[in-house]
Computed example of a mutant assay.
Amino acid sequence: MKPQSNQLYPILFTFFCASLMVVLMGCNSKKEEPQGFQNFNPGQSWPDADSVHINAHGGGILFHDNTYYWFGEYKSEHTSSAQVGVNCYSSTDLYNWKPEGVALPVSDSIGSDIETGCVMERPKVIYNAKTQQFVLYFHLELKGKGYSAARVGIAVSDKVTGPYTYLRSLRPNAGFWPQNMTEAQKNSSLTMADFSDWWTDDWMAAVHDGLFIRRDFEGGQMSRDMTLFVDDDGKAYHIYSSEENLTLHIAELSDDYLSYTGKYIRVAPGGHNEAPAIFKKDGKYFMITSGCTGWDPNAARLFTAESIWGPWEQHPNPCVGDDADLTFHSQSTYILPVAGKDDAFIFMADRWTPKKPIEASYIWLPIQFENGLPVLKWMDQWNLSIFDESNEL
């Protein structure tokens, strides 16, 4: 029976109230949905979108098409040798990361450079705008050879997340002298056979003068801990620990980023630096490194230069406060410029756990500046809003 008009109003009012209640409940429910991470929590577990601790150690980040891509070593439970390969994650806000899978897997082919059980460390990816390819470099040690190979591995992909095609490994700059090595150093008659003991004053002086450069001249220079850097003009550089981890090299890459031009320099000969991380601000180059103490942390080192080709000047440890002499129990891996923010840089480091490598955590801290030099201070929690104010202390 059709209701009379005076009966219709209570029914409509009841229906309106019920509908409003559903809408309000829906709004409240939406507000209570988890929004993911909104802060960085250095040293804490960092779950990805699947609620699994991010597995991208010794890594670096590429910003491409408004998305950040984090590449790093896939660490296993009980070994630091490569059992999986180079892992990849993506993010649009730097706090929350989505797994993109393995960008470069190890090979199951016996004798392959990247055979399961080799060492694949510190992977970095850069984009070549000319070739429209993504280029991956990493420190490679051959399976069963310890750390004697000291090679760089190179892979390439047409897609940022991969899969990457492994091209080759090598020791860089075979047959080329460093730009900043003198003729007297090149022509020195001293060889390894002249030294029965290492670490003596005479031996260190010979190292400074290029003892290992001459030893490895024909076969190429050793390449271990490394990073990549693309300058404002599109030129790319491979920065790596060489000469038995005693000296850093900065080497210019070819236009396609797949080989070397033969132009390179030595930085801090005999200084025993590894874990290089580099950035550029106001036309000046900054590089943070660590000493060489295995898996144990040590004090960070800071270098600056007006040109990528040096000279590079060393400064005191950029870390300040408690545990500054241990870089907050971590080791540098990369320095990330934050997209869309002027002079905003994030220091990325790893807190290694060699007894259970997969549990290694990440130390990300904002780089602040004092008297024009980077400063790193510990923060239990922080977010990108710190860059909305002046980062000069």
Score class of each variant (00 low, 15 high):
residue 103 A to Y: 00
residue 1 M to T: 09
residue 339 A to D: 15
residue 192 M to A: 06
residue 153 G to Y: 00
residue 49 A to D: 05
residue 298 N to P: 12
residue 279 F to G: 05
residue 31 K to C: 11
residue 371 N to T: 04
residue 153 G to C: 11
residue 267 V to R: 12
residue 161 T to C: 02
residue 292 C to L: 01
residue 231 D to N: 05
residue 353 T to E: 09
residue 94 L to W: 10
residue 173 N to E: 09
residue 370 E to T: 07
residue 103 A to M: 00
residue 37 F to D: 09
residue 172 P to C: 06
residue 380 D to N: 15
residue 238 H to K: 11
residue 283 G to Q: 11
residue 211 L to I: 08
residue 206 A to G: 14
residue 144 G to F: 06
residue 14 T to H: 06
residue 115 E to W: 02
residue 17 C to V: 15
residue 177 W to P: 05
residue 357 P to C: 11
residue 257 Y to T: 04
residue 27 C to S: 05
residue 228 L to P: 01
residue 39 N to A: 07
residue 286 F to T: 14
residue 361 S to W: 00
residue 23 V to W: 14
residue 128 N to E: 04
residue 201 D to N: 05
residue 318 P to E: 11
residue 379 M to H: 12
residue 44 Q to S: 10
residue 323 D to N: 14
residue 83 Q to H: 13
residue 245 N to Q: 03
residue 319 C to D: 03
residue 227 T to K: 10
residue 274 E to N: 15
residue 312 W to L: 05
residue 114 I to E: 09
residue 310 G to R: 14
residue 376 L to D: 02
residue 217 F to I: 03
residue 336 L to G: 12
residue 218 E to Y: 07
residue 159 K to D: 05
residue 152 V to M: 02
residue 5 S to E: 12
residue 74 Y to N: 01
residue 27 C to L: 09
residue 41 N to I: 02
residue 261 T to N: 00
residue 258 L to E: 10
residue 149 A to R: 06
residue 118 C to D: 07
residue 338 V to L: 03
residue 159 K to F: 00
residue 121 E to C: 14
residue 151 R to F: 00
residue 273 N to W: 15
residue 144 G to N: 12
residue 200 T to R: 13
residue 101 G to W: 08
residue 364 W to A: 10
residue 278 I to K: 00
residue 218 E to P: 11
residue 288 I to Y: 15
residue 375 V to R: 03
residue 268 A to D: 04
residue 243 E to C: 15
residue 361 S to E: 00
residue 363 I to L: 12
residue 63 F to K: 11
residue 195 F to C: 01
residue 139 H to S: 14
residue 386 I to G: 05
residue 18 A to M: 04
residue 146 G to I: 08
residue 346 I to H: 00
residue 352 W to H: 13
residue 72 G to P: 02
residue 319 C to Y: 11
residue 33 E to Q: 13
residue 340 G to Y: 04
residue 251 A to K: 04
residue 25 M to D: 05
residue 378 W to L: 14
residue 127 Y to K: 10
residue 382 W to I: 04
residue 66 N to Q: 15
residue 348 M to G: 09
residue 178 P to R: 04
residue 335 I to L: 08
residue 53 H to G: 08
residue 129 A to D: 02
residue 143 K to W: 13
residue 87 N to P: 12
residue 183 E to C: 09
residue 109 S to H: 15
residue 266 R to I: 09
residue 165 T to R: 05
residue 273 N to K: 13
residue 217 F to W: 01
residue 68 Y to P: 13
residue 37 F to K: 08
residue 16 F to H: 09
residue 347 F to N: 12
residue 215 R to M: 12
residue 11 I to R: 07
residue 363 I to N: 11
residue 257 Y to E: 02
residue 330 S to I: 01
residue 196 S to G: 10
residue 271 G to E: 07
residue 252 E to Q: 08
residue 326 L to F: 13
residue 173 N to P: 07
residue 377 K to W: 10
residue 80 S to I: 10
residue 163 P to S: 15
residue 185 Q to H: 15
residue 263 K to V: 02
residue 60 G to K: 09
residue 11 I to K: 04
residue 86 V to P: 03
residue 314 Q to L: 05
residue 222 M to H: 15
residue 321 G to A: 02
residue 67 T to E: 11
residue 356 K to D: 09
residue 389 E to W: 13
residue 143 K to I: 15
residue 370 E to N: 07
